[in-house]
Design a protein around this nucleic acid. Structure first.
Lengths: 217, 217, 217, 217
DNA sequence: AATGAATGAGATTTCATTCAT
DNA sequence: CATGAATGAAATCTCATTCAT
């Protein structure tokens, strides 16, 4: 998983190892203080290597950020599929996926927030890499949701909308954690949302009202 | 609306005016290039004043950011209530509020993204100010939603969850605009979401499956 | 004489003054240790200003070099014409010019050497500026020499060749000073050269030999 | 030709070979980008060896420069004598030498310029080595010129002056190539100079004027 | 002998902030 | 009140040199 980021070092095992150190240190520091307030010196210090060495594995400070963000998204992409029991019913798999996704985000809460803060600090093309990676991850969710629709468990709502609804639910857990943490456990938070999206919020009366409203326009 | 931010200038009209200039310039530049890449010199230049003068109306570069973010949130707080026809039915008011909120966010799309990027750059206490302000705005939505629940239009779901669901829907329009812009108009986007949250996604079969699933656990 | 080099400071008197300080310091240091071994910090220190301030009057370290070299060439351009008694006979003026040029180079010996060492360190376009300036200075010499040819004092030899012959004679005094200094005074050096170029080196015998040689080919 | 430069490697054939690689690569790179802008890594890369190995044949980056400059001067010293037809008349030999020297310089134009740029970057004692070598080369020219004087072909002008006149003529071809290249071929350039130095530039009138001028002073 | 990863000092440049005018 | 020149700390990045393998 060397990606596009170039290194002057040949030995790919070593590259893997050093980048691992760098990414681990950078993730921690970027999450804590942000990309701009973190210095290369800090990263090198925490990674236990010299400043100069970082530039043998990365061409830019921005490259470090890219590596960090790719690592976060890789985590999603690795762990969500791992949580799906293959061969089971789409409905169960879909619930698994939603809960797994939320769990994965929770595990990387700070890094997820980091992604929101920092993706815009990347140059055009590096940003595009990240966005593509995000879409790939979303495809995993979209896949299981799509199966549920085909299986007749879910209405044929717009898949992009529904997928991002779920994605944002999980991200909001990270983004608004300052609010939610004192009010819900992760499980409660997720189940509330599942209930919401599965059953909707309208009562009978509400549904009537909705129909009435729609006719007017 | 001087808030806590202190100014060495007495004449409060002038303070208002100068801060207006500063905030307008800074909002534009922060949104475009981010907080860290924007310099005080840039802001002064665009605001048509000298660098030094900024420090008579603000104590810090961070203070400028606080002012900008407060201004964004003020916009929400001002414009959402304005869109509500007073005295009408809660259901209609609720729909108005949701759509208005989305529209307000759309109007400040870049500034909204800025808020996500930059709030964490603020010091503890300044961040708290922003978070409180966000909650105040959310109260407006929560208010009309609550009325709908009381009026029996909506199920008694958790108000915080539902409110943030709607808030995040609007924010996602800004945050993931790179994805949505080529797929939906704002209206389509919003109506898709309203449909989703109002009616839920489960079919009859899905509902049965859900019940079956729940019993197991 | 602000040239093309841009400054963020408006007040042109101040620009003149500060650049004067910077150029004086840089000339000394560049001449002594070369462009690359001299640091901006050194220059600032010797100029009695802060490092940062230099960048308000110059956009680059290379810009400092350009300023220095332009200043050297300006010296030539200012002082050579000043040594010419206007209205006198072309022959006298020509001798004046040659001796004056040598004197001017001698006065700036180290800076002249610097020009040879460092012009190539400039970017393409900045180098072109310097080369043009050199040609302008040479025009002064070419002018008086040309007048001597027109007046019939000198043979109609190629003007570019003769001009550069004289220019290089003066420059060689600086470039090979390590050799000449223990052997000649500047005056002796110059008069030897004038004698050489004026009368040539062939004896009668030599001239015959030369004719014989030429016929063969 | 190991000179004073020390190597940790014993096998002197190998030393010769490796230094050959290093010098060839360095000459090219130094000529192109200058001493300071060329890195040891670049040199190693072009020489096809590793960075570390360079330090087994050289103690310093400056040492590489010394080797390069010595190599250039060696070229002069080798090729000029080779162009002299032994046993011929001093006059012919002198013309041969002048033309050969110009040709040798032309062949190493960039390296010659490099010598002017970089000799000053050497430490005191290394610079002295280069200057001595230059004088040795000049002796070759001085030798044939001296013979011409003894043979009565040339006036008894100062030998140092005349020799350096010719040396500088050739060097100027390299140093001011940006000017001459569009105006003269090497041959034209050289013959113009020979004509100049051999016959001088004064006309009969000029000579009279010169005498008149001299009497005054 | 040879490699190339690692070090760490150091250079350029930027910019928030101050302060004399 | 307003200006903008001046400061100086700090950050990124480069590269000669070393050294374990």
């Amino acid at each position: 998983m060397g990606y596009e980021v170039k290194s002057s070092v040949e030995d790919s095992d070593l590259v893997e190892k050093r980048r691992g150190q760098i990414v681990a240190a950078a993730t921690k520091l970027f999450s804590q203080h942000g990309f701009f307030r973190t210095t290369i010196k800090d990263i090198a210090g925490l990674a236990g290597i010299s400043q100069g060495l970082i530039y043998q594995y990365v061409s830019d400070k921005e490259d470090v950020l890219l590596l960090v963000l790719l690592d976060v998204l890789d985590g999603y992409q690795r762990e969500v599929p791992a949580a799906l029991s293959p061969g089971t019913d789409p409905f169960a798999r879909c619930l698994d996926a939603i809960r797994a996704y939320a769990k994965v985000v929770d595990k990387r809460r700070k890094a997820t927030v980091l992604a929101y803060r920092s993706t815009q600090s990347l140059s055009e093309n590096r940003r595009a890499i990240i966005q593509n990676r995000e879409l790939e991850t979303n495809q995993i969710l979209a896949g299981v949701i799509g199966e549920c629709i085909e299986a007749g468990y879910l209405r044929a709502v717009n898949l992009d909308i529904l997928t991002y609804q779920i994605v944002m639910m999980a991200h909001a857990w990270a983004l608004k954690h300052w609010f939610f943490k004192s009010r819900f456990s992760l499980d409660e938070y997720v189940e509330h949302h599942i209930d919401l999206v599965f059953h909707g919020v309208l009562t009978e009366t509400g549904r009537a009202q909705w129909e009435a409203t729609r006719k007017k326009t």
